[in-house]
Computed example of a mutant assay.
Amino acid sequence: MATHRATKSGFAAEAQRKINAKYSEELAQEVLEWVKILTGDNINVAGDMDNFYEVLKDGTLLCRLVNEIQPGIVKKINTSSMAFKCMENINAFLEAARQLGVPAQETFQTVDLWERQNLNSVVICLQSLGRKAGNYGKPSIGPKEAEKNERHFSEEKLKAGSTIIGLQMGSNKGANQSGINFGNTRHM
């Protein structure tokens, strides 16, 4: 829980303020409403950080959520409120989320939720899981995932492109080395 850490000060406090500033109450509320629909649990769907943390901190609701998307993906859900059991639940959820297709860069670390370090990353992970839920016939949230848009170019088109020098590569028009005095010092 968040009470295990000392109060941050200085640079650490400033960094934590920046992390907390990224948190969106609207997205958190959307996520909690989606979780409520899928699990059928009567949870408070207010999007403020305190409620979001309290609803999800022990990981049991997260495990039930992924089991609703794909039954049996989390074998054992710990009901104990002991710290390591709760963190096991959160880890089981994260592993299940990866198996369901959530990219690694959109997941969070256990301490982000358990110690309330970065609740925004938890929201991002649940939003990503919400997009993936549609692939399993469940209600989804957020924008629809993009589909593959493969392009095929003819040999002629590819050869034509190799003759063009883009401006990203820079230009040396008018460049010379006049005025550069390597090794020649200024005499007084």
Score class of each variant (00 low, 15 high):
165 I>P: 08
151 R>F: 11
183 G>W: 10
65 L>H: 01
68 E>R: 05
31 V>F: 14
48 D>T: 06
41 D>M: 06
49 M>L: 00
5 R>D: 07
143 P>L: 11
131 R>Q: 12
58 D>F: 08
13 A>M: 04
182 F>D: 07
95 E>I: 06
163 T>L: 08
66 V>R: 06
186 R>M: 11
103 P>K: 03
163 T>H: 09
123 V>M: 12
12 A>N: 13
94 L>N: 08
165 I>C: 12
145 E>C: 11
148 K>C: 13
92 A>D: 11
126 L>P: 12
70 Q>D: 00
180 I>Q: 07
149 N>P: 03
164 I>C: 01
5 R>F: 11
39 T>E: 07
183 G>M: 04
186 R>K: 13
15 A>W: 02
60 T>Q: 14
76 K>C: 00
2 A>E: 02
31 V>I: 09
166 G>F: 07
78 N>L: 10
55 V>H: 00
45 V>W: 05
103 P>L: 00
27 L>G: 02
171 S>H: 13
75 K>Y: 05
6 A>H: 07
137 G>L: 15
77 I>C: 12
5 R>P: 01
10 G>R: 04
14 E>R: 10
87 M>D: 01
111 V>K: 13
123 V>A: 13
122 V>Y: 05
150 E>L: 15
133 A>R: 08
67 N>T: 09
82 M>S: 09
129 L>V: 09
187 H>I: 15
59 G>P: 01
22 K>T: 14
98 R>Y: 08
77 I>E: 05
69 I>S: 00
14 E>D: 05
116 R>F: 03
139 P>C: 08
142 G>W: 14
173 K>D: 08
102 V>Y: 01
52 F>A: 01
128 S>Y: 05
145 E>V: 15
187 H>N: 10
9 S>N: 03
106 E>P: 00
